[in-house]
Simulated scan of single mutants.
Amino acid sequence: MSYETDCLMAELEENLRELGIPLSRNIVPQVRINTRAKRRLGCCYYQDGVYAVEVSAALLEQPERLRQTLVHELLHTCPGCRNHGKRWKSHAAQVNEAFGYSIERTVQLEDDESGPLRKETVKYVLECQSCGIRISRTRMSKAVKSPWQYRCKCGGKLKRIQ
């Protein structure tokens, strides 16, 4: 699948350049496939003046989402577009208009038929001793380990109840 993904990225690069999108000339032509990515669909790395694009293995069975994720990451190679600022959004809007994509800063996976990349379950619950608000956490953190060192927005002390 890597060869096909690399060819797809080359095709998308060419399409974006024809559209006038100022992509970097220093993009690694091979797409990295991340089999461990659970929270993101893609990533654009910049190191030593070279950009590399990585996608989640979960996208390999979703051709349209793969295309849009690759375009999303390629847009990060444009000057001033390493974040999702005005310039990146402008290029994304231009691509969406030209190709009928729906490239956004983030995507919602919950309502998709393929489901989220990973279902997170609540493992820890903190409760404010003043206002009673409950704060759910899926992973161990400093606040979960030592809730007495942290405060609620209201200023109340936190206590771990689960």
Rank of each mutant, 00 (worst) to 15 (best):
L74Q: 02
L74V: 01
L75N: 01
L75C: 03
H76Y: 09
H76G: 02
H76V: 02
H76R: 09
T77Y: 00
T77H: 01
C78P: 01
C78D: 04
C78Y: 03
P79F: 12
P79D: 13
P79M: 11
G80S: 02
C81F: 09
C81Q: 06
R82S: 02
H84I: 06
H84D: 05
G85W: 03
G85H: 02
G85Y: 01
K86N: 06
K86V: 03
R87Y: 01
R87N: 01
R87W: 00
R87M: 06
K89L: 06
K89V: 00
K89Y: 01
H91W: 15
H91Q: 06
A92R: 05
A92T: 06
A93L: 11
A93S: 13
Q94E: 13
Q94P: 01
Q94A: 12
V95H: 04
N96Q: 09
N96M: 07
N96H: 07
N96T: 04
E97Q: 14
A98E: 10
A98T: 05
G100P: 00
G100M: 03
G100E: 03
G100K: 02
Y101A: 02
Y101M: 08
Y101T: 05
S102I: 06
I103Y: 14
I103N: 14
I103W: 15
I103G: 13
I103T: 10
E104Q: 15
R105I: 06
R105L: 04
T106H: 08
T106P: 02
T106N: 13
V107N: 05
Q108I: 05
Q108D: 14
L109K: 08
L109Q: 07
E110R: 13
E110M: 12
E110G: 07
E110H: 09
E110D: 12
D111W: 12
D112C: 10
D112L: 10
E113K: 15
G115R: 07
G115S: 06
G115M: 06
P116F: 08
P116A: 09
L117S: 03
L117E: 05
L117V: 03
R118G: 04
R118N: 05
K119E: 12
E120D: 14
V122A: 05
V122S: 07
V122R: 09
V122P: 01
K123N: 13
K123S: 09
K123Q: 11
Y124S: 10
V125Q: 11
V125E: 13
V125C: 07
L126T: 08
L126P: 03
L126V: 06
L126G: 07
L126N: 06
E127T: 07
E127Q: 15
C128A: 11
Q129H: 10
Q129I: 08
C131S: 04
G132V: 08
G132H: 11
I133A: 12
I133F: 12
I133V: 10
R134Q: 15
R134G: 04
I135W: 15
I135L: 15
I135G: 08
I135K: 14
S136T: 12
S136F: 14
S136Q: 13
R137S: 10
R137Q: 15
T138G: 09
T138V: 13
T138N: 12
T138Y: 09
R139D: 07
R139L: 11
M140T: 08
K142Y: 00
K142E: 04
A143V: 08
A143D: 05
A143R: 12
K145Y: 01
S146R: 11
S146C: 03
Q149N: 11
Y150P: 01
Y150F: 15
